[in-house]
């Protein structure tokens, strides 16, 4: 899987390159600025572009905007945004109305190689990956009349995993249950939350996230 990487910290970039290559990815280009990134993406047409949210010149949210540009101009290229801190708002901006080939991860996450590699791979394959802390903030928010309270703890776990972008199989593996059981939980959740069911994974993710966002 071909990767383009953008981070202004040379040290971190080098570390990430080695990490990704070790995990079997092919890092075709790396850059320190948003402009460079866009050029590299246009040039290499990678499977996934990994970008730090804060890159020069302003060190605010260039990475995010670059990611959005990539999603617009190169719908085939998956984008993983790394952030130094968790803001569900950014994630939702990034996802907008399409959860295909997009990821938003906390930068710390990179040190968990399997998790990180899994997430990048999922995005490269057109899936989505949302950092568990973002999901838990969305799910865990206190609400006056919380429809999520109607869910069982297990259903909650399934909901969170879904929001992270995991497939039924992945969820099953993670929760040590059968895929069939996961499907039952998913059906139950969608019924309880009155969401339209969808077989496609990325639509399911978007529906769940938008639903969570809509809850005050």
């Amino acid at each position: 899987m071909r990767i383009v990487l953008a981070d202004d910290s040379m040290l971190l970039r080098e570390g990430l390159v080695r990490l990704l290559e070790e995990a079997g990815f092919d890092v075709v280009a790396q850059s320190g600025t948003a402009d460079d990134l866009l050029r590299h993406v246009a040039m290499h047409k990678p499977d996934v572009a990994i970008v730090d949210i804060r890159i020069p010149p302003t060190h605010t949210d260039e990475g995010l905007r670059a990611a959005q540009t990539i999603r617009e101009k190169h719908p085939d290229v998956g984008v993983v945004v790394l952030s130094a801190h968790v803001e569900p708002g950014y994630a939702m901006e990034l996802l907008a109305d399409n959860a295909e080939g997009v990821g938003y991860l906390l930068k710390d996450r990179v040190s968990d190689l399997e998790e990180f590699a899994g997430a990048v791979r999922r995005v490269g394959e057109g899936g989505s990956a949302l950092d568990p802390t973002v999901v838990s903030e969305l799910v865990g928010r206190r609400r006056r009349e919380d429809p999520l309270e109607g869910l069982t703890p297990r259903e909650r776990e399934v909901l969170e995993a879904m929001a992270e972008g995991r497939s039924n199989a992945a969820i099953a593996g993670r929760l040590f249950v059968t895929e069939r059981a996961v499907e039952k939980h998913v059906t139950s959740i969608f019924q309880k939350l009155r969401l339209p069911t969808s077989d496609e994974n990325h639509r399911r993710v978007l529906a769940v996230l938008q639903y969570l966002r809509s809850l005050e």
Binding site: S9, L11, L12, L16, D108
Partner: peptide, 24 residues
């Protein structure tokens, strides 16, 4: 705040990566 993110945090993440690589 920016210095924390761009300095200390980056370095710590890099360190974390290095540890990860070393561990492998």
């Amino acid at each position: 705040e920016r210095n924390l993110h761009d300095g200390a945090q980056q370095r710590l993440v890099s360190l974390s990566l290095a540890l990860r690589l070393a561990e492998a």
